[in-house]
């Protein structure tokens, strides 16, 4: 339990011990400890999920799922195995993949309906990528205010969830590659390969849209 004396003691401990004490409190069904965890970690988890899921409502739902899982399984956290944030992002990663899968199925149904109604696949892709018909080669893009960074954002959205997750954990959450391996349950080499392939795919997409990936920096 995290009480006043517990908090004083925890402050003197290292981060790892502090996390262990917090999780022991939650395992003992201490709601104050749980509330501390929620406000300490959910912003990072929520922002990570936002990059993947895009919808605040969906992120609310997945953050709730993550927190419920933490409440029910707090006793399984072992600080010797890794940081609390790694454990939490591991749970969030699994929940995000499930949510993305649900979204994929939903979109698939929409595509089938769209195809039946005669709406072309390319048109659908562009519309859902948020680009409309104003690609970089199209003069309209200037009118609509498209900037080079938007193209990169669009390209990121085209990555597979596995590639996207590695990119976001690296660039947004600023994880080490070792932590990403723990979060995603993959070997370290797989993490590096996924990142390399994600970069390759991004470069291909940028070239497809008329940009050299190496010109972006210079253009800015």
């Amino acid at each position: 339990m995290i009480h006043t004396t517990g908090q004083t003691k925890a402050a003197a401990l290292g981060e790892q011990e502090c996390e262990a004490v917090l999780m022991q409190g939650i395992a003992g069904k201490d709601r104050q400890a749980f509330e501390r965890l929620y406000y300490s970690y959910s912003p990072r988890i929520g922002n990570f999920l936002m990059k993947l899921l895009k919808s605040p409502e969906l992120v609310d739902e997945v953050v709730s799922e993550v927190m419920m899982t933490v409440w029910q399984n707090a006793d399984r956290f072992d600080s010797a195995q890794g940081k609390l944030s790694t454990w939490l992002f591991g749970i969030a990663h699994n929940k995000a993949l499930k949510a993305l899968e649900r979204g994929r199925r939903h979109r698939l149904e929409q595509v089938l309906e769209t195809e039946e109604s005669g709406f072309g696949e390319d048109e659908w892709d562009d519309a859902h990528a948020g680009l409309g018909y104003a690609g970089p080669d199209n003069p309209e893009r200037t009118v609509l205010g498209w900037e080079l960074g938007d193209i990169l954002l669009w390209a990121l959205d085209q990555l597979t969830p596995e590639h996207r997750i590695v990119v976001e954990l690296t660039m947004t959450v600023q994880c080490t590659y070792q932590d990403i391996a723990l979060i995603t349950g993959c070997p370290v080499n797989t993490v590096k390969t996924r990142m390399f392939n994600a970069r390759k795919k991004l470069a291909e997409l940028l070239i497809k849209r008329g940009y050299s990936p190496y010109d972006i920096e210079e253009a800015r």
């Binding site: 922002n47 605040p56 953050v63 990169l152 990121l156 600023q174 470069a203 972006i216 920096e217």
Partner: peptide, 20 residues
Amino acid sequence: LYRQLDRQRSAGRHAADWQP
């Protein structure tokens, strides 16, 4: 390219896309 990616995502790091 990685620096560009980092710049793009760093905006996300500081902007509160989602708040508890």
